[in-house]
Structure formats: C-alpha cells, structure tokens
Computed example of a mutant assay.
Amino acid sequence: MASQQMFKSGQARGEGQAKADQMMDSAQSAADAARSKASRAAQSAQQSKEHAGGMLQQTGEQVMNMAQGAMDSVKNTLGIGDKKS
C-alpha cells in the first residue's frame, strides 16, 4: 500500500510539474507576443513622426513662398518692388 501511495504522489508531482511547465510556456508565448506588438507599435509611431515632420516642412515652405509672393505684390503695387523683366 505504501508503494501505491508513493506512486500516486509521484504521479501527482509529475502532473503538477507538467502543468507548471505548460503555464510557463504560455506565459513566455504571451510575453513574446506583447514584445512583438510593442515593437510594431513603436516602429509605426516612428514612421508617423517622420511623415508628419516632412509634411510640416513642406507646409512651412509653401507658407514662406506665399508670404514672399504677397510681399512682392505689395511692393510692386506701391512702386517699390524690384522690376523683373
């Protein structure tokens, strides 16, 4: 009878170890998935930042060109602008 109890104890211990291993594998998989998702999110944010920076630079250049054109028009209207032929 003692050997049967030892067998059951060993069996329970083995099953417990298998469950613990399975849970560790699941936790590792979840951590890997979260790490991958965070990496993709960071990369996407960086690309968005770069795109926004390019758009702002282009818009700034357009505003400067429009302001320069308006200033040239005012100068020409007042007769103080450069005469370009």
Rank of each mutant, 00 (worst) to 15 (best):
D72V: 02
A45G: 01
D25G: 14
M71E: 15
Q22N: 10
K19D: 02
D21F: 03
Q57S: 11
A52E: 11
K19V: 04
F7I: 11
S85R: 15
A30Y: 12
D25Q: 15
E50G: 07
Q57T: 14
M23F: 04
M64L: 15
V63T: 08
F7K: 13
M55N: 02
Q58C: 08
M55Y: 01
K75S: 05
A38N: 04
A67P: 03
E61R: 06
M71L: 15
K83L: 13
S48H: 12
A45Y: 02
G79T: 02
S9G: 12
A33N: 04
Q22Y: 08
Q43S: 14
L56T: 12
K49F: 03
S44F: 13
G14C: 10
D72R: 01
Q43E: 14
R40S: 12
M1G: 07
I80R: 01
H51K: 14
Q47S: 10
S26G: 12
Q5P: 01
G69F: 08
M1P: 04
M66N: 10
S36M: 14
S73K: 07
A70P: 01
Q46A: 12
M55G: 03
D72Y: 00
K8C: 03
Q17I: 10
A27E: 15
A2W: 09
K19T: 03
A45T: 00
G14R: 13
E50M: 06
A2M: 03
Q57C: 07
L56S: 12
R13Y: 11
G81V: 01
K84F: 10
H51T: 06
T59H: 11
Q47H: 10
D82Q: 15
S9I: 08
Q57A: 15
M24K: 10
Q5A: 10
A30L: 14
M6N: 15
K75G: 01
Q46Y: 07
A27N: 14
A67S: 08
M64I: 15
E15Y: 11
K8V: 06
T59P: 08
T77I: 08
K37G: 02
G79P: 01
M24P: 05
A33Q: 09
A34F: 02
M23R: 13
A31D: 05
A30F: 11
D32N: 10
R35Y: 04
K19S: 07
K84R: 09
S29R: 13
N65S: 13
S44V: 11
M1Y: 09
A20C: 04
G60K: 02
A34I: 08
V63N: 08
A12P: 02
S3W: 13
Q4S: 03
A45Q: 07
D21L: 02
A20M: 04
K19G: 00
K19F: 03
Q28F: 05
Q28L: 08
R40D: 13
G10T: 06
M55S: 06
Q5W: 01
Q57H: 13
T77A: 07
D72L: 03
D82S: 14
Q58V: 06
A27P: 09
Q68D: 05
K75P: 04
H51Q: 03
A12K: 00
G16Q: 00
M24F: 07
M6W: 13
K83P: 14
M64R: 15
E50K: 08
G69Q: 15
L56K: 06
A33C: 03
G54Y: 00
Q28S: 06
A42V: 12
A30T: 12
H51P: 01
F7V: 11
F7D: 06
